[in-house]
Structure formats: structure tokens, C-alpha cells
Computed example of a mutant assay.
Amino acid sequence: MITRSRQHGMGIVGILGVLAMLGFFAMCIIKMIPPYSEFISIRDIVVDIVKDPESVEKSSSEIRRKVDYTFNTNQIYELNWKEVEVYRKKGKHYIDARYEVRMPILWRIDAVLKFDDLLFEIGDPTPLTTPP
């Protein structure tokens, strides 16, 4: 009686499946890098405005103008400066720049990047967790 020894391991179909999954995730990461890097720029802009000692004394419209100017200078496209809310509540100014980006990935598959840690009180560079 002759017994054959079988090799165990991943076949060509399994390898192709793993490569397809890795390719899909790599494509997702590559498509998400530009919105995420723009979020980092937006966060830095808003934190700079919040930390500026002159911002405490400015009105809401002056802060909005500064946000508009800085967004245009840094070529921010994902978030329109008009969508950034600057308001006054209980004698303090707040900047709310929270937003989300929806991008198509493949056919009917979309990715949603939600940037919800962009709510600040003027003068305090730590983000607020809940609106005042």
C-alpha cells in the first residue's frame, strides 16, 4: 500500500483572496490620506486662532474673517469657512468646526470620516466634548 503525503498550506485561490483584501484596504487608506491630512491642517488653524490672545477680544465676525483668510491661504477645500460656526454664549466665544467627509470607495461602498473633535472655546486649546 502506497501512502501519499499531502502538502498543507494556502493554495493559489487563497493567496489571490488575501491579495485582493490587502489591495482593497490599501486603496481605502490611500483614498483617506488627503482628507485626513487636511483635517490636521484645519485642526492646526483652529487651534492657532483659539490660542491667539487677540482672539479673546475680537468679535465673532472678526474671528470668522480670520478663519476665512486662513482657510483660503492654506487651500482648505473639504470644509468651507461658512460651515465653521463662531458664536458667543455666556460671555465666551466658541468655534465649532466639526464636519464629516463622505467619499466613494468602490461601486456602492462609501467611507465616512467624521471629525468631531473641533469644538473649542476661545482661549482654551483643548477640544470640548459637548457643546456648551
Score class of each variant (00 low, 15 high):
residue 2 I to N: 08
residue 3 T to K: 15
residue 3 T to S: 03
residue 6 R to Y: 10
residue 7 Q to K: 06
residue 9 G to R: 05
residue 9 G to P: 01
residue 11 G to K: 01
residue 12 I to R: 11
residue 13 V to H: 07
residue 13 V to M: 08
residue 14 G to N: 15
residue 14 G to I: 00
residue 15 I to W: 13
residue 17 G to R: 06
residue 18 V to A: 14
residue 18 V to N: 13
residue 19 L to S: 08
residue 22 L to Q: 02
residue 24 F to D: 03
residue 26 A to H: 07
residue 30 I to A: 15
residue 31 K to M: 06
residue 32 M to V: 11
residue 33 I to M: 06
residue 33 I to G: 09
residue 35 P to G: 06
residue 37 S to V: 13
residue 38 E to F: 12
residue 41 S to L: 07
residue 42 I to N: 02
residue 46 V to Q: 04
residue 47 V to I: 08
residue 49 I to W: 00
residue 49 I to P: 11
residue 50 V to K: 00
residue 50 V to W: 07
residue 53 P to M: 09
residue 55 S to E: 10
residue 56 V to N: 12
residue 56 V to Y: 08
residue 56 V to R: 13
residue 58 K to D: 10
residue 58 K to V: 05
residue 60 S to A: 14
residue 61 S to T: 15
residue 63 I to K: 08
residue 63 I to D: 02
residue 64 R to F: 01
residue 64 R to I: 02
residue 65 R to N: 15
residue 69 Y to G: 08
residue 70 T to M: 04
residue 71 F to Y: 03
residue 73 T to S: 09
residue 73 T to Y: 14
residue 74 N to K: 01
residue 75 Q to K: 09
residue 77 Y to M: 07
residue 80 N to C: 12
residue 81 W to S: 14
residue 84 V to T: 00
residue 84 V to P: 03
residue 84 V to F: 11
residue 87 Y to D: 05
residue 88 R to Q: 09
residue 90 K to G: 10
residue 91 G to I: 06
residue 97 A to R: 01
residue 97 A to E: 02
residue 100 E to Q: 14
residue 102 R to P: 14
residue 106 L to P: 00
residue 106 L to C: 14
residue 106 L to Q: 01
residue 106 L to G: 08
residue 107 W to E: 06
residue 109 I to H: 05
residue 110 D to P: 04
residue 110 D to S: 13
residue 110 D to G: 10
residue 110 D to T: 09
residue 113 L to Y: 04
residue 115 F to K: 05
residue 117 D to S: 14
residue 118 L to I: 04
residue 118 L to V: 03
residue 121 E to C: 01
residue 122 I to K: 10
residue 123 G to E: 10
residue 123 G to P: 11
residue 124 D to I: 15
residue 125 P to F: 01
residue 129 T to R: 06
residue 129 T to F: 12
residue 130 T to I: 07
residue 131 P to C: 04
residue 132 P to L: 01
